[in-house]
Simulated scan of single mutants.
Amino acid sequence: MAIKYVKWLALCALAIFLSGCFDTTPTQTKIKLSGRTMGVDYHITYIDVAKNSEEIAKARQSAIDKLLKTVNEQMSTYDKTSELSRFNQSRSLEPFEVSPDTAKVVSESIRLAQLSEGKLDVTVGPLVNLWGFGPNMRVEKLPSSDELETAMNQVGIGKLTVDGNYLIKAIPELYVDLSTTAKGFGVDVVANYLDGEGVANYLVEIGGEARIKGRANEQRDWVIAIEKPVSSHRAIQEYISPRNNGLATAGDYRQYFEENGRRFSHIIDPDTGMPIDHKLVSVSVIHPSCMTADGLSTAIMLMGPEKGLEFARAQNLAAYLVTKTDSGFDTVYTDAFEQYLVKPVN
Protein backbone atom coordinates (compact mmCIF):
# COMPACT_ATOMS: atom_id res chain seq x y z
CA MET A 1 0.00 0.00 0.00
CA ALA A 2 1.51 3.29 -1.05
CA ILE A 3 1.25 6.07 1.49
CA LYS A 4 2.07 9.62 0.52
CA TYR A 5 3.92 11.54 3.22
CA VAL A 6 3.78 15.30 3.39
CA LYS A 7 6.90 16.83 4.91
CA TRP A 8 6.34 18.25 8.39
CA LEU A 9 7.43 21.86 8.10
CA ALA A 10 7.27 22.41 11.85
CA LEU A 11 6.35 20.54 15.03
CA CYS A 12 2.88 22.06 15.10
CA ALA A 13 0.97 25.04 13.79
CA LEU A 14 3.38 27.93 13.86
CA ALA A 15 3.08 31.56 14.67
CA ILE A 16 4.95 33.98 12.40
CA PHE A 17 6.96 36.53 14.31
CA LEU A 18 7.34 40.08 13.15
CA SER A 19 10.78 41.68 13.14
CA GLY A 20 12.11 45.16 12.67
CA CYS A 21 10.07 46.55 15.54
CA PHE A 22 12.94 48.27 17.30
CA ASP A 23 15.65 50.64 16.15
CA THR A 24 18.98 50.53 17.91
CA THR A 25 19.74 53.66 19.94
CA PRO A 26 22.86 54.65 21.85
CA THR A 27 21.37 53.14 25.01
CA GLN A 28 19.26 50.25 23.68
CA THR A 29 20.20 47.42 21.34
CA LYS A 30 17.97 44.80 19.77
CA ILE A 31 19.68 41.42 20.06
CA LYS A 32 18.64 38.44 17.93
CA LEU A 33 19.73 34.87 18.69
CA SER A 34 18.82 31.74 16.75
CA GLY A 35 19.69 28.06 16.61
CA ARG A 36 18.31 24.52 16.54
CA THR A 37 16.78 22.45 19.30
CA MET A 38 14.30 19.54 19.53
CA GLY A 39 14.35 19.24 15.76
CA VAL A 40 13.17 22.81 15.14
CA ASP A 41 14.57 26.33 14.94
CA TYR A 42 14.52 28.74 17.83
CA HIS A 43 14.52 32.53 17.62
CA ILE A 44 15.08 34.91 20.52
CA THR A 45 14.85 38.67 20.36
CA TYR A 46 15.53 40.86 23.36
CA ILE A 47 16.35 44.46 24.15
CA ASP A 48 19.62 45.16 25.96
CA VAL A 49 20.80 48.38 27.55
CA ALA A 50 24.38 47.33 28.35
CA LYS A 51 27.25 48.99 26.48
CA ASN A 52 28.84 45.60 25.73
CA SER A 53 25.55 43.97 24.73
CA GLU A 54 26.98 42.02 21.77
CA GLU A 55 29.64 40.35 23.93
CA ILE A 56 27.05 39.54 26.57
CA ALA A 57 24.80 38.06 23.85
CA LYS A 58 27.47 35.51 22.90
CA ALA A 59 27.67 34.26 26.47
CA ARG A 60 23.89 34.16 26.74
CA GLN A 61 23.55 32.17 23.52
CA SER A 62 26.02 29.61 24.85
CA ALA A 63 24.09 29.35 28.11
CA ILE A 64 20.76 29.02 26.28
CA ASP A 65 22.10 26.28 24.01
CA LYS A 66 23.26 24.34 27.07
CA LEU A 67 19.87 24.72 28.74
CA LEU A 68 18.03 23.49 25.65
CA LYS A 69 20.47 20.62 25.20
CA THR A 70 19.66 19.55 28.74
CA VAL A 71 15.91 19.62 28.06
CA ASN A 72 16.46 17.45 24.99
CA GLU A 73 18.60 15.01 26.98
CA GLN A 74 15.84 14.81 29.55
CA MET A 75 12.64 14.51 27.50
CA SER A 76 13.35 13.58 23.87
CA THR A 77 11.91 10.37 22.45
CA TYR A 78 14.29 10.69 19.49
CA ASP A 79 17.38 10.53 21.70
CA LYS A 80 17.55 6.90 22.81
CA THR A 81 19.73 7.84 25.78
CA SER A 82 17.44 10.57 27.19
CA GLU A 83 15.81 10.14 30.57
CA LEU A 84 12.41 9.66 28.99
CA SER A 85 13.67 7.15 26.41
CA ARG A 86 15.35 5.09 29.13
CA PHE A 87 12.11 5.15 31.11
CA ASN A 88 10.18 4.02 28.04
CA GLN A 89 12.68 1.25 27.31
CA SER A 90 12.55 -0.04 30.88
CA ARG A 91 10.14 -2.87 31.61
CA SER A 92 10.44 -2.50 35.36
CA LEU A 93 7.50 -1.39 37.47
CA GLU A 94 9.84 -0.03 40.11
CA PRO A 95 10.09 3.78 40.54
CA PHE A 96 12.39 5.29 37.88
CA GLU A 97 14.38 8.35 38.97
CA VAL A 98 14.42 11.36 36.66
CA SER A 99 15.43 15.00 36.93
CA PRO A 100 13.14 17.48 38.72
CA ASP A 101 12.44 19.09 35.33
CA THR A 102 11.21 15.86 33.75
CA ALA A 103 9.11 15.12 36.82
CA LYS A 104 7.64 18.62 36.60
CA VAL A 105 6.64 18.27 32.95
CA VAL A 106 5.14 14.82 33.50
CA SER A 107 3.23 16.07 36.55
CA GLU A 108 1.78 18.99 34.59
CA SER A 109 0.91 16.65 31.72
CA ILE A 110 -1.00 14.43 34.13
CA ARG A 111 -2.81 17.44 35.60
CA LEU A 112 -3.86 18.59 32.12
CA ALA A 113 -4.96 15.07 31.27
CA GLN A 114 -7.24 15.06 34.28
CA LEU A 115 -8.49 18.58 33.49
CA SER A 116 -9.32 17.58 29.90
CA GLU A 117 -10.93 14.29 30.95
CA GLY A 118 -8.19 12.26 29.32
CA LYS A 119 -8.04 14.01 25.95
CA LEU A 120 -4.45 15.14 26.51
CA ASP A 121 -2.71 11.84 27.23
CA VAL A 122 1.09 11.66 27.12
CA THR A 123 0.92 7.85 27.29
CA VAL A 124 -0.49 7.87 23.75
CA GLY A 125 3.04 7.16 22.46
CA PRO A 126 2.30 3.58 21.27
CA LEU A 127 -0.48 4.94 19.05
CA VAL A 128 1.67 7.82 17.79
CA ASN A 129 4.38 5.31 16.86
CA LEU A 130 1.88 2.91 15.31
CA TRP A 131 0.60 5.63 12.99
CA GLY A 132 4.14 6.57 11.96
CA PHE A 133 4.50 9.89 13.77
CA GLY A 134 7.06 8.81 16.36
CA PRO A 135 10.85 8.51 16.14
CA ASN A 136 10.70 5.99 13.26
CA MET A 137 8.47 8.40 11.29
CA ARG A 138 7.21 5.84 8.77
CA VAL A 139 4.62 3.09 8.32
CA GLU A 140 4.32 0.83 5.29
CA LYS A 141 0.60 0.24 5.75
CA LEU A 142 -2.28 1.46 7.86
CA PRO A 143 -2.58 -0.18 11.30
CA SER A 144 -4.82 -3.22 11.54
CA SER A 145 -7.63 -3.51 14.06
CA ASP A 146 -5.55 -5.99 16.09
CA GLU A 147 -2.58 -3.61 16.15
CA LEU A 148 -4.84 -0.75 17.25
CA GLU A 149 -6.33 -2.86 20.02
CA THR A 150 -2.89 -3.87 21.27
CA ALA A 151 -1.68 -0.27 21.32
CA MET A 152 -4.89 0.98 22.96
CA ASN A 153 -4.35 -1.49 25.82
CA GLN A 154 -0.98 0.15 26.47
CA VAL A 155 -2.43 3.66 26.69
CA GLY A 156 -3.99 5.41 29.68
CA ILE A 157 -2.89 8.29 31.88
CA GLY A 158 -3.93 6.28 34.92
CA LYS A 159 -1.07 3.90 34.15
CA LEU A 160 1.48 6.65 34.91
CA THR A 161 2.22 8.25 38.26
CA VAL A 162 4.81 10.66 39.65
CA ASP A 163 6.22 10.41 43.16
CA GLY A 164 8.72 13.16 43.82
CA ASN A 165 11.42 12.73 41.17
CA TYR A 166 10.30 9.22 40.30
CA LEU A 167 8.11 8.05 37.42
CA ILE A 168 6.18 4.83 37.95
CA LYS A 169 4.63 2.54 35.33
CA ALA A 170 1.59 0.39 35.97
CA ILE A 171 2.40 -1.80 32.95
CA PRO A 172 5.83 -2.68 31.50
CA GLU A 173 4.92 -1.48 27.99
CA LEU A 174 3.99 2.07 29.01
CA TYR A 175 5.50 4.64 26.65
CA VAL A 176 5.42 8.37 27.40
CA ASP A 177 5.61 11.03 24.68
CA LEU A 178 6.01 14.60 26.00
CA SER A 179 5.86 16.31 22.59
CA THR A 180 2.72 18.19 23.67
CA THR A 181 4.36 19.89 26.67
CA ALA A 182 8.17 19.60 26.53
CA LYS A 183 8.70 22.17 23.78
CA GLY A 184 6.62 24.71 25.70
CA PHE A 185 8.68 23.87 28.77
CA GLY A 186 11.84 24.62 26.77
CA VAL A 187 10.45 28.06 25.98
CA ASP A 188 9.78 28.63 29.68
CA VAL A 189 13.32 27.54 30.56
CA VAL A 190 14.82 30.14 28.21
CA ALA A 191 12.41 32.86 29.34
CA ASN A 192 13.18 32.14 32.99
CA TYR A 193 16.90 32.35 32.21
CA LEU A 194 16.44 35.78 30.62
CA ASP A 195 14.40 36.85 33.65
CA GLY A 196 17.34 35.84 35.82
CA GLU A 197 19.64 37.90 33.60
CA GLY A 198 17.49 40.94 34.25
CA VAL A 199 16.23 41.20 30.66
CA ALA A 200 13.01 43.21 30.79
CA ASN A 201 11.89 42.96 27.14
CA TYR A 202 12.09 39.74 25.12
CA LEU A 203 10.38 37.39 22.72
CA VAL A 204 11.39 33.71 22.90
CA GLU A 205 10.14 31.30 20.21
CA ILE A 206 10.87 27.61 19.71
CA GLY A 207 9.18 25.93 16.77
CA GLY A 208 6.22 28.27 16.96
CA GLU A 209 5.68 28.22 20.75
CA ALA A 210 6.56 31.49 22.44
CA ARG A 211 6.82 33.52 25.60
CA ILE A 212 6.85 37.29 25.66
CA LYS A 213 7.79 39.92 28.21
CA GLY A 214 7.77 43.68 28.14
CA ARG A 215 7.57 45.62 24.89
CA ALA A 216 9.26 45.73 21.49
CA ASN A 217 9.94 49.44 21.99
CA GLU A 218 8.51 52.41 23.84
CA GLN A 219 5.68 52.80 21.35
CA ARG A 220 4.42 49.26 20.85
CA ASP A 221 4.05 45.79 22.33
CA TRP A 222 5.47 42.70 20.72
CA VAL A 223 3.13 41.76 17.87
CA ILE A 224 2.74 38.19 16.62
CA ALA A 225 0.80 36.82 13.68
CA ILE A 226 -1.08 33.54 14.02
CA GLU A 227 -0.53 31.53 10.87
CA LYS A 228 -3.42 30.68 8.56
CA PRO A 229 -3.91 26.90 8.71
CA VAL A 230 -2.96 25.99 5.14
CA SER A 231 -0.17 23.57 4.20
CA SER A 232 0.60 24.89 0.71
CA HIS A 233 1.97 28.30 1.71
CA ARG A 234 2.36 30.65 4.66
CA ALA A 235 -0.21 33.33 5.32
CA ILE A 236 -1.42 35.38 8.28
CA GLN A 237 -4.68 34.60 10.05
CA GLU A 238 -4.64 37.15 12.89
CA TYR A 239 -2.36 39.65 14.62
CA ILE A 240 -2.13 39.37 18.38
CA SER A 241 -0.14 40.82 21.26
CA PRO A 242 0.13 38.19 24.04
CA ARG A 243 1.94 40.61 26.37
CA ASN A 244 3.58 38.94 29.41
CA ASN A 245 2.44 35.43 28.56
CA GLY A 246 3.21 32.23 26.74
CA LEU A 247 1.58 31.32 23.44
CA ALA A 248 1.16 27.88 21.86
CA THR A 249 -0.63 26.85 18.69
CA ALA A 250 -1.68 23.31 17.79
CA GLY A 251 -2.82 22.30 14.32
CA ASP A 252 -3.19 19.29 12.04
CA TYR A 253 -2.12 20.85 8.75
CA ARG A 254 1.67 20.62 8.98
CA GLN A 255 2.20 16.94 9.79
CA TYR A 256 0.05 14.29 8.20
CA PHE A 257 0.05 11.61 5.55
CA GLU A 258 -2.41 10.78 2.80
CA GLU A 259 -3.63 7.39 1.65
CA ASN A 260 -6.19 6.95 -1.13
CA GLY A 261 -7.10 10.63 -0.88
CA ARG A 262 -7.71 10.55 2.88
CA ARG A 263 -5.66 12.67 5.24
CA PHE A 264 -4.42 11.22 8.54
CA SER A 265 -3.40 13.79 11.15
CA HIS A 266 -0.49 13.39 13.56
CA ILE A 267 -2.81 14.24 16.47
CA ILE A 268 -4.12 10.92 17.79
CA ASP A 269 -7.31 10.67 19.85
CA PRO A 270 -6.60 8.41 22.87
CA ASP A 271 -10.30 7.52 23.07
CA THR A 272 -10.41 5.99 19.58
CA GLY A 273 -6.78 5.29 18.74
CA MET A 274 -7.36 7.13 15.46
CA PRO A 275 -6.11 10.45 14.09
CA ILE A 276 -8.56 13.27 14.75
CA ASP A 277 -11.20 13.71 12.06
CA HIS A 278 -13.11 16.96 12.48
CA LYS A 279 -13.19 20.50 11.13
CA LEU A 280 -11.10 22.17 13.84
CA VAL A 281 -7.69 22.82 12.24
CA SER A 282 -5.92 25.23 14.57
CA VAL A 283 -6.03 26.25 18.23
CA SER A 284 -3.96 28.99 19.87
CA VAL A 285 -3.85 29.37 23.65
CA ILE A 286 -2.32 32.20 25.69
CA HIS A 287 -1.24 31.37 29.25
CA PRO A 288 1.50 32.57 31.63
CA SER A 289 3.20 29.17 31.21
CA CYS A 290 4.10 28.19 27.65
CA MET A 291 4.26 24.55 28.79
CA THR A 292 0.65 24.74 29.97
CA ALA A 293 -0.46 26.61 26.84
CA ASP A 294 1.25 23.91 24.76
CA GLY A 295 -0.71 21.12 26.41
CA LEU A 296 -4.02 22.98 26.46
CA SER A 297 -3.90 23.85 22.75
CA THR A 298 -3.49 20.16 21.89
CA ALA A 299 -6.24 19.13 24.31
CA ILE A 300 -8.69 21.53 22.67
CA MET A 301 -7.66 20.30 19.22
CA LEU A 302 -8.51 16.77 20.31
CA MET A 303 -11.92 17.82 21.61
CA GLY A 304 -13.07 19.33 18.32
CA PRO A 305 -14.74 22.68 17.61
CA GLU A 306 -17.82 22.52 19.82
CA LYS A 307 -16.50 20.68 22.86
CA GLY A 308 -13.15 22.47 22.60
CA LEU A 309 -14.76 25.90 22.71
CA GLU A 310 -17.04 24.83 25.56
CA PHE A 311 -14.04 23.57 27.54
CA ALA A 312 -12.03 26.75 26.89
CA ARG A 313 -14.89 28.94 28.06
CA ALA A 314 -15.56 26.80 31.13
CA GLN A 315 -11.89 27.03 32.14
CA ASN A 316 -11.73 30.78 31.32
CA LEU A 317 -8.90 30.12 28.86
CA ALA A 318 -7.66 32.62 26.30
CA ALA A 319 -8.22 30.46 23.23
CA TYR A 320 -8.54 31.14 19.50
CA LEU A 321 -10.04 28.40 17.31
CA VAL A 322 -9.96 28.12 13.51
CA THR A 323 -12.42 25.77 11.79
CA LYS A 324 -12.35 24.73 8.14
CA THR A 325 -15.51 25.34 6.13
CA ASP A 326 -16.53 24.72 2.53
CA SER A 327 -15.77 28.36 1.72
CA GLY A 328 -12.59 28.83 3.76
CA PHE A 329 -12.12 29.25 7.52
CA ASP A 330 -14.25 30.41 10.43
CA THR A 331 -12.67 31.78 13.59
CA VAL A 332 -13.99 32.06 17.12
CA TYR A 333 -12.27 33.09 20.33
CA THR A 334 -13.12 33.20 24.00
CA ASP A 335 -13.79 36.39 25.90
CA ALA A 336 -10.45 35.91 27.68
CA PHE A 337 -8.63 35.98 24.32
CA GLU A 338 -10.19 39.19 22.97
CA GLN A 339 -7.89 41.48 24.96
CA TYR A 340 -4.88 40.17 23.01
CA LEU A 341 -6.21 40.93 19.53
CA VAL A 342 -4.44 43.73 17.71
CA LYS A 343 -7.06 46.07 16.34
CA PRO A 344 -6.44 47.37 12.80
CA VAL A 345 -5.47 51.00 12.52
CA ASN A 346 -7.83 52.97 10.26
Rank of each mutant, 00 (worst) to 15 (best):
P100M: 04
D121C: 10
R111Q: 07
G125W: 00
D48K: 10
M38D: 01
E55D: 13
V124E: 12
L112D: 06
E149N: 13
E108G: 08
A59Y: 06
N136H: 14
T70Y: 03
K169G: 14
S90P: 12
K66R: 02
L115T: 10
T29A: 06
Q89R: 11
T27H: 09
V40G: 03
I168V: 15
V71C: 15
L130R: 04
E149T: 11
L127E: 01
T70N: 07
S107P: 01
T29E: 10
V98Y: 04
T81F: 04
N129E: 15
V49M: 12
L167M: 01
D48E: 15
P135H: 13
K32V: 13
Q28D: 10
R86W: 01
T29F: 05
S109I: 08
P95T: 03
W131F: 06
I31M: 13
V162W: 08
L84C: 04
V71P: 09
S82M: 00
F87C: 05
P126V: 09
A57L: 00
D79C: 00
I31E: 11
A170Y: 07
S62A: 12
E147H: 04
L112I: 15
G39R: 08
F87E: 08
L130Q: 08
K169N: 14
K80M: 03
G156Y: 09
Q154Y: 02
T123W: 07
R60L: 01
T25Q: 03
L93R: 11
N52P: 00
F133I: 00
V162H: 07
I47R: 15
D163F: 00
V98E: 09
A170C: 13
T25V: 00
M137K: 14
L160A: 10
G35W: 05
T81M: 02
L148R: 12
L142W: 05
D101H: 08
I110W: 03
I31G: 11
S76P: 11
K69N: 09
D65L: 08
S53D: 11
S145W: 02
D48L: 07
D79A: 01
N153C: 06
L112H: 06
D48A: 15
K169F: 11
P26L: 07
G134F: 03
L115H: 09
H43L: 06
